[in-house]
Design a protein around this nucleic acid. Structure first.
Length: 657
RNA sequence: GCUCUUGUAGCUCAGGGGUAGAGCACUUCCUUGGUAAGGAAGAGGUCACGGGUUCAAAUCCCGUCAAGAGCUCCA
């Protein structure tokens, strides 16, 4: 898994079928996308007050845009978690410079306090309006309301068709709305971006104008403040300020350079995981960053996921021969795909290597489960527009492991994996995550292998999730094609969801690699594989963790745990004594020997978010004590050096928050 | 990958057709101070890169690269 989280895509049936050679199903991604867009009337009726307000404000926004640019063609305009948006097709490119004008028009509409009137019409009447450009507009137009015509066709036959009017603005809309535009008094146009019509990259791109709205000005201000504060904990900003990581153009997009400070955090986390792995009976392994193409032909990765891999590496001699033959790039690509030419691939996943370790010698049922773990670095060619700081990158290290077990062991092994994830999340104080159980879609044959096994594994995953005690959602159709899975999903500071840990049951790879173990009956049996990564990837996890702690890492993770601040140079000797004492106990400590005044030294240490500052002056040098200042708790009194060291070491050892 | 926006000193940013600005950081000197900024001086930039327009381009235009937001994608 990795940035994407899933080992295999679950919604691209073409890949699935080629991989498993099952007959094509009736699964239609287009229909599914539409279903996601269209809320049922029932769902709409359940709209919360805030959603209703926001949806109404979206109409106010559309009214304003229609006034400023009468040729605007509107598509969808729903409420969202953060506010609302309205998709519009418009010759004029809306930029942030237009926002004041749009907001001014919106204010006029609000001031006029127009009522939202619901009008039930027949399909024909609605169609006539749409054809005369009257829908999502202030009056009839020369061009029809194209998107609304399209939307009309999607409304089921038996469903009522309603038009909402506010002033002269009429829009095809199921509602519901607030009574009057005067209710929409606290709003703000936030941003504009593009979006594909109906979320399909083959459809035209529309301009999506985002806004937000609240009951009153105070709540709006609070929301805007929260957004400002969130920016302050953005891992990209903190990563730079705290020297945690760097991305350099000369190295490449999406390739993380861990700075010494970031490396400390990562190393501490890896040590932590390694300790837990040892407790749970894992064996750690190391495998190279590349493997032969044939390996990935067997696994299926190379043939079916070329688009998201770095291009293969081909031997120099081989390339020379091909050049002499006048082989074109296209031919080379074809011959690589066909297996006519071999080469190497930067590994997109660790499983094939681990499988080869498992398969390197005969296995008895007595050996199972075999649990192979590795901080394995993988490379994926993510689309440039997807890259994002540390959370979506092109090279990343998974805290990966593959468990090979018998059918009967699956449930226990899943429990083990989940308890590991839980231990990790608890230790880090991460409570704000959601658990997603991805199951097979019972109405689809979009899965590989025996349905009974799937359901058994699915049940095991559900049981495990229940025992975990965290709220979880079951999402049929969200399984990987090769097996059901559990994902742990968290949000970043701007509300985007990222998948971290995952536990996935796999029936396909053991098959493809023809894995077996000898059972008690002295016959070969097929093991089941479990892929799991509690962090997902070190890059993404640390990115999320930076935001989780707002850069204030708990002492055990902090790159610099203690900074000694002598009042003046006269006390450098004692400072060095203290530094040596702490260093000998393995504490990451430095001394600020600059000629700054103490206030400035404290300020710098605070900005660097160092957990403990030790102020040392005449009093301390005299009594052989240190004055402790904690970055959050402030002045914490003074104590002897040894006492401080003991307390600190215990805090670090116990990984306290 | 697509749409829009952005790219000026290590960092944060101002400026803008006529040979480059601030604050912080950095270096040196003075200061030796008790819980979030002591003072002075100095050094530092091919204004992302490549073309074009112009007497003249950091500034305008085109392209490339990169970043941000959103969409699409995420084995």
């Amino acid at each position: 898994m990795g940035p994407g989280g899933r080992w295999f895509e679950s919604s691209r049936p073409d890949h699935f079928f080629s991989l498993t050679q099952n007959p094509p199903s009736l699964f239609d991604p287009m229909a599914e996308a539409e279903a996601k867009q269209r809320k049922t009337l029932e769902e709409r009726a359940q709209m919360s007050d805030l959603e209703r307000l926001r949806h109404s404000t979206a109409h106010v926004l559309a009214t304003a845009i229609a006034k400023l640019w009468p040729d605007a063609q509107f598509a969808y305009g729903p409420p969202t978690e953060q506010g609302f948006y309205y998709d519009v097709d418009l010759e004029h490119r809306i930029t942030p410079e237009d926002f004041p004008a749009i907001e001014a028009e919106m204010k006029k509409v609000v001031k006029e306090n127009q009522s939202f009137e619901r009008l039930v019409v027949s399909r024909d009447e609605a169609l006539t309006m749409a054809k005369s450009g009257r829908l999502a507009a202030l009056g009839e137009r020369e061009t029809p309301s194209t998107f609304k015509i399209d939307l009309l066709e999607e409304i089921p036959e038996d469903e009522e068709i309603s038009i909402y009017k506010n002033g002269d603005f009429w829009d095809l809309c199921a509602g519901p709305h607030v009574p009057r535009t005067g209710n929409c008094k606290a709003f703000k146009v936030m941003s504009v971006a593009s979006a594909f019509y109906k979320g399909d990259a083959n459809n035209p791109q529309l301009q999506r104008v985002y806004g937000t709205a609240f009951k009153n000005k105070t709540e709006l201000e609070e929301h805007l403040d929260r957004l400002e504060q969130a920016k302050e904990r953005d891992h990209r900003k903190l990563g730079k300020e705290l020297d945690l990581f760097h991305i350099d153009e000369a190295v490449g997009q999406g390739l993380i350079l861990w700075m010494p400070n970031g490396a400390v955090v990562r190393q501490e986390l890896q040590t932590f995981i390694s300790e837990e792995l040892a407790k749970q009976g894992y064996s750690q392994v190391f495998t190279p960053h590349i493997g032969k193409l044939d390996l990935y032909r067997t696994s299926g990765h190379f043939p079916y996921y070329q688009d998201s891999q770095y291009p293969p590496l081909v031997e120099r001699e081989q390339l020379r021969l091909l050049a002499d033959e006048g082989c074109s790039c296209g031919e080379l690509s074809n011959r690589l795909s066909s297996g006519d030419i071999d080469g190497f691939l930067l590994k997109p996943m660790n499983c094939p290597h681990h499988i080869k370790i498992f398969a390197s010698r005969p296995r008895s049922y007595r050996d199972l489960p075999v649990r192979l773990a590795e901080f394995g670095t993988v490379y994926r060619w993510e689309q440039s527009g997807e890259l994002n700081g540390m959370t979506r990158v092109r090279g990343f290290t998974q805290d990966d492991a593959h468990l090979f077990c018998t059918e009967d062991q699956v449930a226990d092994e899943i429990m083990g994996c989940l308890s590991l994830v839980k231990t990790i999340f608890n230790t880090l104080g991460m409570e704000d995550y959601r658990v997603r159980v991805g199951l097979r879609d019972p109405d689809s044959d979009k899965f590989a292998g025996d349905p009974e096994k799937w359901d058994k594994a699915g049940a095991a995953l559900r049981d495990a999730a229940e025992k975990l005690g965290a709220p979880f959602t079951e999402e049929p159709g969200e399984a990987a094609f090769y097996g059901p899975k559990i994902d742990f999903v968290v949000k970043d500071v701007i509300g985007r969801e990222w998948q971290l840990g995952t536990v996935q049951v796999d029936y396909v790879l053991p098959e493809r690699f023809d894995l077996s173990y000898i059972g008690p009956d002295n016959k070969p049996h097929r093991p089941v594989m479990i892929h799991r990564a509690p962090f997902g990837s070190m890059e993404r996890f640390v990115g999320v963790l930076i935001e989780h702690f707002a850069g204030k890492f708990p002492t055990w993770l902090a790159p610099e745990q203690v900074r000694i601040l002598p009042i003046s140079e006269k006390f450098l000797d004692f400072a060095t004594e203290v530094e040596t004492e702490l260093k000998s106990a393995g504490v990451r400590v430095t001394t600020d020997a600059s000629s700054d005044k103490i206030g400035a030294k404290i300020r710098l240490a605070q900005i660097d978010k160092i957990p403990y500052m030790l102020v040392i002056g005449a009093r301390e040098a005299e009594s052989k004590e240190v004055s402790i200042r904690h970055r959050d708790r402030g002045d914490a009194g003074s104590c002897g050096v040894v006492a401080f060291r003991e307390r600190l070491v215990e805090e670090i050892r116990s990984r306290s928050l």
